[in-house]
Design a protein around this nucleic acid. Structure first.
Lengths: 248, 248
DNA sequence: TTCGTATTTGCGGTTTTTTGCCTAATTTAA
DNA sequence: TTAAATTAGGCAAAAAACCGCAAATACGAA
């Protein structure tokens, strides 16, 4: 196995699992630990991954946790503005949770007259602060990690709605694997939301693009619009445009 | 699990729960207390969290904490303690919203194993911070004044529950008129909750006693227990005791 | 093809990091 | 105050990283 080939494989594994161990890789590929270590070192120098003692972590994984809240607030605001422009009075809208959605909720025009359905406790509270919009909280068991209601009852409720729009925060979006998540229950909710809506909008900072997580939520062709903080003509977004998504 | 990964996880947990215990983390991740402590130490050195005896606090939480100073907090705490003492593992409990309920949620024993049903968005979030209890959010249209879900669907959901306990925050309680409220929709919810439970507990500061509001929720005989910040033998509470309520 | 060079790889020995355990000291709660 | 829980520091084992070197391999030019 060639060096280049090996490094491609490492990056692939990293996209899949978000972390890799030196020992695992050397075993799986039948090369020495040293070789793997040298590979990881090079890839880390090229900023393709984060080298840590014992293995390596995917970049998106690392940035996903500690930066997202603080750093990207400005970006999230741009996203929120763009998204708010797509919402019109009279619409019925399904939304997930996440910081991008919260920012979006704050950016809504104060004389907007729409109805929002959500499984996110925090989003519901944020929407409820708005003077004129209606908020419907979709009930079920509360998933503590995500502060989302999840379960069969919630899915059933969503299925009984015919919404104009579905606005989802992105965890991971990839041209090949599509929209993906790590939490099975949350995936079920998002799938139901997409199915219950005429149009699906995915919003999130560009960091989340070109990364994958364990469970698929939807293929790219199920998503209509992609909104990031970037200019719609940014080359990073081109592959998604080619796949048929409308970019804002 | 890699060291870096572990530390990211700790920060993630901290963002979610605002506080974490050494022992909890070491259990959850299957490493020794020492390792966790060393992790927390490093993260504290990097200013990512605040290390305290037994665990750590989220930075944002600590700064946001003092603004929550409600004037009756001490009284509410007494109420919360008394109420928490009545809850046992395995119970199914319906609760309304309000600051007293929120304080109650914070006072629950960390190894309690009960299931809470609520229409209050804020209460659901507070309950969800607890490590082991289950939280079910009852869905419906969000009433903006009270941040409660109200409506036929919510009432129907409540009717399908058989709870051990119903814990209601008091708006007005009067020996003659009983428990009363001003919001028609909220009244419907509370009535349904009382009906769906074996026992009903009313909690609130004594200021709320001997006052009436427009719409009756329940007669005194539908209420089993009354909890205030006062001593159970306080003369203010005597009339309620005579009406058959148990006072704590 | 064959040769020479540059790169890559594996190995042994050493150093560093990480982790768990131990004990003593400190803090907390009753 | 005492008793229990938490922490600090030292220590040792295991894992991982580092270093230099020599063998193996790839690659381009004759």
């Amino acid at each position: 196995m060639l060096k280049k080939e090996r490094q491609e494989f490492i990056l692939h594994q990293l996209n899949l699992h978000n972390k890799i161990l030196c020992a695992d890789l050397s075993n799986k590929m039948g090369v020495s630990d040293d070789t793997i270590r040298r590979d990881l070192q090079e890839l880390a120098q090229d900023d393709k991954l984060i080298k840590v003692h014992g293995g390596a972590l995917s970049k998106s994984f690392h940035t996903a946790f500690d930066r997202k809240m603080v750093y990207n607030l400005e970006d999230k605001n741009i996203i929120a503005q763009k998204t708010a422009a797509l919402v019109q009075s009279g619409m019925y809208i399904l939304t997930s949770g996440g910081t991008s959605i919260l920012e979006f909720a704050k950016s809504l025009d104060s004389n907007l007259n729409a109805t929002f359905f959500t499984c996110s406790l925090n989003a519901a509270i944020e929407f409820a602060h708005h003077p004129s919009i209606e908020v419907v909280m979709i009930g079920d068991k509360v998933s503590k990690d995500s502060m989302l209601t999840t379960g069969a009852s919630a899915v059933q409720t969503i299925e009984s709605i015919q919404a104009d729009l579905c606005i989802l925060g992105i965890n991971s979006l990839d041209t090949q694997f599509g929209l993906s998540e790590n939490d099975w229950e949350v995936v079920q909710i998002k799938k139901a939301m997409i199915k219950a809506s005429k149009k699906t909008i995915c919003i999130g900072i560009s960091e989340k693009l070109n990364s994958q997580q364990k469970i698929k939520v939807a293929n790219l062709d199920e998503i209509d619009i992609l909104i990031t903080e970037l200019d719609p003509n940014d080359p990073i977004l081109l592959p998604f445009k080619h796949k048929g998504l409308t970019i804002y």
